[in-house]
Amino acid sequence: MTEQELKNLIRKKQQKSLTKKEEATLLSFEKKMLDRNRAHVFLDEIHKSKISSTIYAKIQSKKQSHISNIWMKVAAILIITISLGSMHWYLSPNKKSSHNMRPKITMLQIEAPFGKKRTFNLPDGSIVKLNSGSKIKYPEIFNDSIREVTLSGEAFFEIKKDSSQPFIVKTSSLFTRVLGTSFNIKAYEDEDNTIVTLATGKISVGTNQKDEIILNPSHQAILNKKNKRFTKQKIDLDKTLSWKNGILRFDNEKLATAIPKLEKWFNVKIKLKNKNSAACAFTGIFENASLESILENITFVKTTLKYKFITSNEIEISGYCNN
């Protein structure tokens, strides 16, 4: 297709005289060129859709002759600014048939290693906060019908509302479907439960299409990964979501469950010399605290416990506890 041929197709679109074949050719050209130059033309899919709708609506308005001249200039600028390499690819007589070409989906992965946390934006503007030892996979560009990501670990989501594009988070054990809301998913592979906590809005959670439950704010769905059964409970959001504000909270928590949290949070290994001390329970709230500070607090309260660093990332807790 030459530049003149493209202009002719645009004129025919204005006049509503495109054949189905010509319309398909024009749409195919737009898609291929913009897929290869999207970063330089549109901010995102929503922006692209709005601009496209606006342009074609104006083309069909009463000021058609004036708009026609403007559109011809826009078309010419678009053709000139598209990279020569992309244009050469499309215009080349040796290119593969467009019927055999499928747009390549580029998958991205963001990871927060143990001891670190990350906050970033998804392509639609939604915000994700990843907890330590977590990763998320998502397409570079969401398609027009759905926004889907895959999570391993724990993350808090603030989803940009778009009723035409449901947002789905998949883990190895369940999926969560939303339109626009904020929620937390805890889905570490080494833990027995997958937990979904809703902060605002409304979401559905399930393991298949016929097994979905609805959550309201300040409620939690807990999936037992062994028996595939859900339980629901009301929770204190401040306590449950304190991790995203750099706060570690232990409410009469046993060392058996507190130690895995500390290991993920600080990227360390903690060994109990006396296995019976796993039942020791303690309470504490630690905001942006160091591991040493937390261990000092635990052993201050539980005076029969002691700790020592074997290496910089390996700790041993010895002693016993009578609670």
Rank of each mutant, 00 (worst) to 15 (best):
T150L: 07
I235W: 13
K32D: 08
G180R: 11
N288Y: 06
K12F: 10
C280H: 04
A187T: 07
L255G: 02
T231D: 13
L18M: 10
S318M: 00
K95L: 03
K20F: 02
I127A: 11
T299E: 02
T106V: 15
F175G: 05
S293C: 01
K244A: 01
L122V: 08
Y188S: 10
I51T: 14
P123V: 06
A281S: 12
R11Y: 09
W265R: 06
G284Q: 07
R118D: 11
R36M: 09
I77N: 10
D162H: 12
S204M: 14
N274M: 06
K20H: 04
Q209L: 08
Y320Q: 11
I235T: 08
P217R: 07
E314P: 06
K170E: 04
N297R: 01
S290T: 13
E45L: 14
N131T: 04
M87W: 14
N267G: 15
V149L: 11
K63P: 00
G125L: 05
I285E: 14
E154G: 02
K232A: 01
H40G: 07
S126I: 03
S61W: 03
K254R: 14
A256K: 14
S312D: 13
Q14P: 00
L78G: 04
K254D: 09
E316Y: 05
K117N: 07
T194Y: 05
A57D: 15
H40N: 15
Q165W: 09
A281E: 10
I203Y: 07
N216K: 15
T2F: 02
S164F: 14
L108I: 14
T119F: 00
E148N: 14
F29W: 15
H66I: 08
I285S: 10
S61R: 03
S318R: 01
S204I: 13
A155M: 08
L295N: 08
S277L: 13
Q64I: 10
N208T: 05
D124G: 11
I259N: 00
A279P: 00
I110T: 15
V205T: 12
D44S: 04
I55N: 07
K73D: 09
G246A: 03
K160F: 07
D35G: 05
L91T: 15
V128C: 02
Y188F: 15
Q220V: 06
V169N: 03
N143L: 04
N69A: 09
S97V: 03
K261Q: 15
K228T: 08
A258D: 07
F230T: 01
S86M: 06
C321V: 06
